[in-house]
Structures are given as C-alpha cells and as structure tokens.
Amino acid sequence: MSSSIRRSFVVVTFIAGLLSANGVLTSAQWLNYPIPGVPRTKDGKVDLTAKAPRTADGHPNLSGVWHVYSEPLEEKKRLYGAEVAAFSVLGDQVTDISKYAINLLTDLPTGEVTLTSEGKAAINRIRQAGDLPRCLPFGVPLGTLMTQVHKIVQTSGLILVMHELDSMTRQIYTDGRPLPVDPSPSWLGYSVGRWDRDTLVVETVGFNDKSVLDLFGHPRSEAMRFTERYHRRDVGHLDVEMTFDDAKMYTKPFTVNVTHLLQADSDILEYVCNENEKDREHLKR
C-alpha cells in the first residue's frame, strides 16, 4: 500500500459507514462516583501517578475503566488529510479515537509490512461491502481504540475485558489452560494470559475473518495470532503492546503500542446497537 493512498483517506464512505452503524449509548449513572480504594490527592482527585495497585496474589491489578490515548486532531490531519476532521458523528468524534483506529499501520515505514495478494483481495472486498458492520461487532482491537471506553475486571483465574462498544465481553483465562488447538472461529477469539513479571501477556487465536482491524479496512484471517502485553505503568496509565501475526494477510508480523488512560470514578454505559439507529437512511442517499 502506498503512502499516498494511506494519507489520502480514500476510505471516506467506509469509515462513515463504520462510525454510523453504531446505535446510541443509552444510559448512564454513577458517573463521577468516587470509587473506594483509589489513591487520591488532597483535593480528592485520583492520584494518577501513584503506584499501580496489586491483587491479593501480588500481581498488578489492571482493573479499571480505560480509554485509549487520542492524539490531537492536528496529528490526525497530518496523517490522514484535513478531511478527517469531517468525521464527527455525535458520540463517535474522530478527536476521541486513536490514530490506530483509523490505520493500524500508520507508523510503519512504507513497504515494511504489506498486504499479501490474499490480503489485497480481502481489503478490496471489505471496502466494496461499504456499511459492513450492521450491528456486528467491531472486534479486537478496534473495540478499545474508538470513542468508547472499556473496563477490565480482574479476578483470580479470569480477566474480563468489557467493551462499551457493542457491549462485548472478552474472557481472558489465567488459570493455566492452553489455547485451543483447532478452535471454532469467533469474533473475539479465545484468549489465555500469563504473567511475565509485572506484565500480563495475552495470546489470542481462533478469530473469524469477518471483522476488520481498523477503519481503513485492514483484514484479518482465521490464522491470525494476536499477542498483547499489558503493563500498568501507574494508577493512571496502562501500556499495551499489540502484535499481529497473520501470514495469510500480511508479509510479516507487526507491532503497535498504545496507552490507555484511567477514567477514574467513571463507568462503562449500557450500549444497545440496534436502538434508535438514524443513520442508515441518510447513508443510502
């Protein structure tokens, strides 16, 4: 894929379809409720630079409500062109999404990672489909790179990653079970995690090929293996390194680093995709 194509934001319609295929966030309560057990400064605000909390078993506790760091709009204009500012559906503002939500490969030098012939065919197919989702899930990792927050709930043996977007819940087993050998393909895949000192390493396989990795339409195949390394730097910051290994679609694996910011005293909201949808009629025009 050439840099000029990448920067020209040719996927206008595709992105518009993706952004508008979501329903509304219906409900909220307990926002700004001071959560017990969180270190605070003298003025009552959460001390985001305090040491990361730990669970009873001594591991870092990743639990919390998180939202991906969103680069300034100017940076997105530089990467994708001034047209990117036009995409601001209420609740899905481009200002509040990660640059990687638009294009996961944006930081890579041109030509370093390219689509295979099968990958090129897949991305063309995806773009021609246009309004692809129809309330089907955005998948991984896109569900954590958009406007909506996600919530991690960590227990002994199982970690939940709950995406506000599409109301998706990923289960990451940390009870020692191995990954399935021949999994039945799924939207969120099958995940197991283990601790490498203070870093949670999550391996996921068993994806279906129905979802996309980003709004650009980068495809994934059933063969994709996804590795995440979660490191809670302090109370307020969660660094996640994501490595995508999909030889069917890409010429070599690639890695993307994102930081999620704690949304202290906040919560995920109930999300019903099919409710109050108003966009599709306009998209048809």
Binding site: S27, Q29, W30, Y33, P36, L160, S167
Partner: peptide
C-alpha cells in the same frame, strides 16, 4: 458480574458500599 450468553449482555452489581440513586436520569434495560 452476571454475563448472559443470550445476546452477550451483562449486568454489573456493585458491592463497594454505594447506594442506589434516589432518581435515575438515564434508565437502562438492565
């Protein structure tokens, strides 16, 4: 958490001492 296989929905039950609000400005399905 209560995770429903049906529809992939979930409920969150807080056990951190908070009380139910007297009024709900944004009622929810669950």
């Amino acid at each position: 958490m209560i995770l429903y296989e049906l529809g992939g929905h979930y409920r969150q039950i807080y056990v951190d001492g908070r009380r139910l609000p007297a009024e709900f400005n944004l009622p929810a399905y669950f």
